[in-house]
Design a protein around this nucleic acid. Structure first.
Lengths: 215, 215
DNA sequence: GCAAAAGTGTTAATCATACACCCATGT
DNA sequence: ACATGGGTGTATGATTAACACTTTTGC
């Protein structure tokens, strides 16, 4: 039964992850400084090889947990990259995923195959190994396109968030400032979020209403 | 250098293609009746294994040419499917592509590994092998979403086409009828097509202006 | 002259934008 | 009381949707 599958050599398949983080001020991408060849001591997206017994998403979760300590995040498939020379080791495909996380919620843990992990401003990335600059660009474009049509929050914000927090995130991704009232109307009109009835208190000003995404 | 790549067994990688065809009346998807196991004598999307020396698009073009006779079509990556049991032969990933073609422009040629090729109404597909029903659904959804934002025509229509032909295509994909005048305005406002100055004559009614896509 | 499809403009409705004042809290 | 950020409505402009009659051809 496996015969046909063995007729030709198979490519390797990796999963690479573009992890966006938003700390309330600026949007970042998590990069990993590789310890080993290829691209030793260079920055790349966190990634790893797909195993036969796991789905793409399971692989992405495992890889991110092992290499960065980040667990249980929402992932969405971005694109699959298959250029012939994107990896010097041979034919390696990359099924890329992206995610949005709140960096404050995770403790980064540098895995064994990395020198360092660091958040970089999403528009000011260092030179990257493989074709990861290209992958990051595609992810940025996807994020910016997607936010036009729907509120983006995922894990970037806490489960409950104020309208200002959501607005600051959108402004950050869009690169422009928005009108508070119109933003409020648009978000509520989308039907994707609702008020929790609770408020965020303890700040220096009027307590803000807390919202949550509707599942 | 290849050592790391050999540590784990590799999955097989196929390219599957959702080829949409429009004959002026209805939108169809091209299916192939398999000659061999698995899924012998069942309908599937045309597809085949990726070779190490070719990109996804080259593979898709080769596969379509070999199995259907269709050449040189515009392809766009749809999604990559990686379910653990989508292929009974083992772990097989599928990088799916979709394309739009004008069936009248191609002579279908049944390849050696198929019993038959046939166009099926895009909403009335027979049961399909592998997870190809799912892939077809994703492609349908993508096409319907995409047409909201831009005129889709490309290879579906002839290089020159009348506004009514383009409108019939859009109505077919959207599943609703549109107003002629508003459609005309919207298409021209998109800036993606222009009048050729010529007309389609010889029909039973007033000759229609011919348009073309701006490259 | 009749049938069939093409071409075209105006009005109404909807949606998006711009904009400013008062409110609740902490200090 | 004042500083800080939160909450809210309306008026205008822009876009989209609804709608019908005239024109050109073949028969």
């Amino acid at each position: 039964m496996q015969d046909e599958l063995l007729l030709y050599p198979h490519p390797s398949v990796t999963i690479d992850c573009v992890v966006f983080g938003y700390d309330g001020e600026q949007l970042s991408i998590l990069l990993l400084n590789r310890r080993d060849e290829p691209f030793a001591n260079q920055w790349t997206l966190p990634g790893g090889f797909l195993r036969l017994e796991e789905t793409f998403e399971e692989a992405a979760q495992r890889i991110l947990k092992d290499k960065t300590g980040i667990e249980n995040l929402f992932l969405e498939q971005l694109y699959t990259f298959g250029g012939l020379s994107r990896d010097p080791r041979g034919r390696v495909l990359s099924v890329a995923y992206y995610a949005l996380v709140n960096p404050a919620k995770y403790q980064l843990m540098v895995g064994q195959m990395a020198n360092e992990l660091r958040w970089f401003h999403w528009k000011l990335l260092p030179p990257l190994g493989f074709d990861h600059e290209h992958i990051a660009q595609v992810a940025q474009a996807r994020l910016a396109a997607k936010i036009q049509y729907q509120p983006i929050g995922f894990e970037l914000l806490n489960a409950q968030f104020t309208m200002s927090e959501l607005q600051a995130l959108h402004e950050c991704i869009l690169g422009e400032s928005l009108d508070r009232r119109n933003f409020h109307k648009r978000m509520m009109a989308s039907g994707l979020l609702r008020s929790t009835g609770e408020r965020r208190e303890g700040l220096k000003s009027r307590p803000a209403e807390l919202f949550e995404f509707i599942p």
